[in-house]
Design a protein around this nucleic acid. Sequence first.
DNA 1: TCTGGGGTCCTAGGACCC
DNA 2: TCTGGGGTCCTAGGACCC
Length: 427
Amino acid sequence: MKAIVDCNSFYCSCERLFRPQLDDKPVVVLSNNDGCIVSRSDEAKAAGIAMAVPYFMAKDIIAIHKVATFSSNYNLYGDMSWRVMETLRIMLGVANVEVYSVDEAFLDLGEEGTNDWEKIGLHIRQTVEQWTGIKVSVGIAPTKVLSKVANHLAKKNKIATQCVVVLDTQEKINTALQDTPVKEVWGVGRQYAKKLSDMYAVFTAYDLSRKSPEWANKNLGGVVGTRLVKELRGESVQVMEKELTVKRMIATTRMFGHTVKSKEAIKEAIATYTSKAAEKLRRQYSAANIISIFVVAKGQDHNIDFRHGESIGSHITLPVATSSTHELIKPAVALVDRIFVEGTQYKKAGVMLSGLVPDATIQGNLFTEEKHNGKRLLMSMVDNVNFAMRNDVIKFAASGTTRNWKMRMEMRSPRYTSRWDELYEIS
DNA sequence: TCTGGGGTCCTAGGACCC
DNA sequence: TCTGGGGTCCTAGGACCC
């Protein structure tokens, strides 16, 4: 059996840990730049605040219902996430926990059919809450996709289910699938949901489970759809990812706090994002072959995908893969000259590193001097100092010092669990 | 006036190789 | 007039996830 453990309104729950007076009050957390609402407590949902709405559009309803509002505090959420995952690893063994996202993990519960899955689910939920203070929902079923369905039902019905739903018989599975609109199935997004209902009269997860894998192969994106239907029918084809996987692409992209029209400011931002991306790169012991940048002008769709849109992006393939900030910054900043247009107001920029390889086995280049991924040791020291002291104590001059393009973050709570000078105080 | 920031997998088609 | 049969690698683009 597989389980998925999903933290309830994760970012809001983290904020409440240190403000228990907010426990039964509406709470929301905003995205970077205080742009949209990305996490809502049940009370905020009940007040009618939708997911992902722009903050400025929700301000009225927030005021009316006195909703506690926070900027996102990723240091806090990251640390709490680690505590939750560590609890699961201690309970089930490292090999049986697959961290799926900051607030979700799949568990492998083994195959014995005699287990009391409800009891196991409840025990997991209670232990995580007791050890970390974070409330979770647990879905248990024969496959990953079905466990997601179970989890969905647990969250929809917290009181009756005690946040644990088990689908261990075909009967329970069928009932659950009939209660689930097809668009809520994991792997069915907006496009497929529309196609399924408009063209094939598939409205519920149950309808989809009645289709054959061959049908899915033809009409639902090939092998992806095939796997999806098989999982809905109880055949486990999505295996647990046992090993820590390294990322194949690393991106750092941000909206600016205000629009920016000076080329120098754009270059500072690109240099800063490159430093951030390079840190992520070194954290997973990778080096990058390709560096891409993009900018988004004021009028353009801010959601534009950084891999597309030739006109605003540019990339360069490096002669030799590297993870050194200084070797990445120079070409990244040079790319700004290619795409910057004088007189344009920009609102967003980003850097993306790809063509990633392990930094221990970098392919040399016949035509360049061998440098051994220059200054790897120096970079490690910079990373260590920045980690131990404070973000960006040491930075590259190209990143600038004024940074008037930096994003807004006006309502962030203290980093209670990861900064000595921001510890929770009891008076 | 103000709308996030990351990631994944898969497929089709073109270039190129023998 | 006729014109093989495999491969691989890369890129662009489409879908999805949180």
